[in-house]
Each structure stands twice: as C-alpha cells, then as structure tokens.
Amino acid sequence: MSSRYAAPDEPAELTVRCQDDHSVSVKFCDLFDEDEDLAHYAIEVCAAGLNARLDGLPTWNWGGDLAPFLEKLTEDFRGWDGERVWQTIDRDLTVRAVFRSGGHVGLTWTLRPWQMSVGSWEASVTTWLEAGEQMSALATDVRHFLGQEAGHHG
C-alpha cells in the first residue's frame, strides 16, 4: 500500500469547522490507497470534552461515496424538508443533513464502530455551514481529499 499524499502540494488532511461553534470540528486524515478501486481514511470528531477517531473507513471509486452526497446538498441550496442521510457500507460513519431557515445546513457526523460488539461506542457532532458557498467548498474539498477528481484515487 502506498501513501495517497506523496505529492507535496496536496493536503494531508481536511478539517470542517462549525460556523456556530469553532470548537466543533470533523477532520479527515490518513488516506491511503488499497488498490485502484478502494482507499481508506480516518475521521476524527471533536467538540468540548469530546475527541473520537475512527480508522479504516472505505472510499470507493464507483461514486456511491460521501462527495456525491454533499454535492447533491449543494445543488439544493434553497433547502429541503426533512432529513437526508448517507452512510458507509458498514454504517460505521453516518452523516445526517437538515436545512434550517436562514440558509444553513446542519451536518451531524456520527461515528459508530463495531456495532455488533460488546465494546461498541458512538460519538456525534453537528457542524452548521452556510448552504451556498460553504457547502460547495466542503463538497469540493471532500472530493479532492478522497482523490475522486478524475474518477480514480491517485
């Protein structure tokens, strides 16, 4: 396995901060390629009194990943009713999106590894972002981090 970020001009991590509370953040890091179709990354969620990390999240080259979900939210910047949900295939990471008046999107990031194990745990944080520019930048940054600009992982 090779490191995804061999080039010095590429970011090694991506941090999303809540516009309402800058102590709340989500960090994508430690991306590595397994093969041409699959890579893995880690995600950390932080808030006052909380710091949780989940390693080995898969990202696939075939488009059912987080970046297209965020891009769809960006396209609907005028809002939507209810909640939209995206999950990794094994449900270790869930992202729930809601639209609030004033043009803001709340993304609740839930880490829940080992769901069927006795030692399972769960941690969640919610980041609030502006529905237009901030969501668009996030979708672009996530696509870049996951290495999906040209339809493949580095």
Rank of each mutant, 00 (worst) to 15 (best):
M1R: 09
S2C: 11
S3P: 01
S3G: 11
R4D: 01
Y5K: 12
A6T: 09
A12S: 14
E13I: 02
V16R: 09
R17F: 06
D20L: 08
D20S: 08
D21W: 04
H22E: 15
S23D: 01
S23H: 00
K27E: 15
K27F: 13
K27N: 14
D30P: 02
D30T: 09
L31W: 01
D33M: 08
E34Q: 14
D35Q: 10
A39L: 12
Y41P: 09
I43D: 07
E44P: 02
E44A: 04
V45M: 02
V45F: 13
A48W: 09
N51D: 13
R53S: 01
L54T: 12
D55T: 08
L57H: 05
L57R: 09
N61K: 07
G63M: 06
G63W: 06
G64V: 04
G64T: 03
D76Q: 15
G82H: 00
E83F: 07
R84C: 00
Q87P: 14
R91A: 12
T94G: 06
V95Q: 05
R96S: 11
R96C: 08
A97D: 02
A97C: 13
V98C: 04
V98G: 05
F99A: 01
F99R: 01
R100N: 10
S101Y: 07
G102I: 09
H104A: 02
L111N: 11
R112F: 02
P113S: 08
W114D: 15
M116N: 15
S117F: 06
G119D: 11
G119R: 09
S120H: 12
W121R: 00
S124Y: 00
S124Q: 13
T127S: 09
T127N: 13
T127H: 10
G132C: 13
G132T: 14
G132P: 03
E133A: 15
M135K: 10
A137G: 03
L138G: 05
A139T: 08
T140L: 13
V142W: 04
H144V: 10
H144A: 07
L146M: 07
E149G: 12
G154W: 10
